[in-house]
Design a protein around this nucleic acid. Structure first.
Lengths: 110, 110
DNA sequence: CGGGATCCTCGGAGATACTG
DNA sequence: CAGTATCTCCGAGGATCCCG
């Protein structure tokens, strides 16, 4: 989805701009469970490239959804967790998940 | 958002595939209130092109979210309304709308 | 009025190589 | 381990013209 192009300033559009890109929802879904490390996320999200994972995390960090914690250790360790704002998106993910499940059931009936 | 590329088969991703494209959520938002005619939608969704509106409506119709009703009159009249499946997405839109409102408030505080 | 057909743009997404 | 730096590709989205 093009995030840069103009959309009506309605709350729904605002929400989509923050989490509508291809992988963000899946990242968010993982982070809702617990904090994750970079490589850990990359392994779990099979198919995502380093660049896209980085871009997505940076973008979500800039939007205040994700918190990035760097541990000054050797080897380096970076953990990504949800901010309070990110945590507040749980109901959205939950409703989308429930709807997705119901949708798949309706497909099987046909 | 690229809808054609592969995504994990999780319910959240399924939902995004159906309504994650740029205008679909806004169309859905309108249709949740009442049925709309083609030109009516185009005027309301300022900035949308005919092609994109057509493509979006056709796609949503194919997904079973939108119902297209043609009235055999002169001049032709076509109405778009929500199917039962589309109507069932109301909670998702509502939660996204509420979150969007809360997000804007949090921006003003900074 | 409600599109169909055609052509084009732009940026999200991906692949690859390299680094503190 | 967790990135950065380039290059490339592709398709959603857009513009324009035409039609039953």
């Amino acid at each position: 989805m093009k995030l840069k192009s103009e959309l009506p300033a309605c709350p729904v559009a605002t929400t989509v701009q923050l989490i509508g890109s291809k992988w963000k929802l899946l990242i968010l879904r993982n982070l809702l469970a617990r904090p994750w490390r970079f490589n850990e996320l990359q392994k779990n999200l099979e198919g995502i490239s380093q660049k896209v994972l980085t871009d997505s995390l940076r973008s979500m960090e800039a939007d205040g959804i994700v918190t990035r914690t760097v541990y000054p250790e050797v080897p380096p360790r970076v953990e990504y967790s949800l901010s309070e704002l990110g945590e507040s998106m749980r109901p959205i993910i939950a409703s989308m998940e429930q709807w997705g499940i119901a949708y798949k059931k309706s497909l099987n009936k046909e």
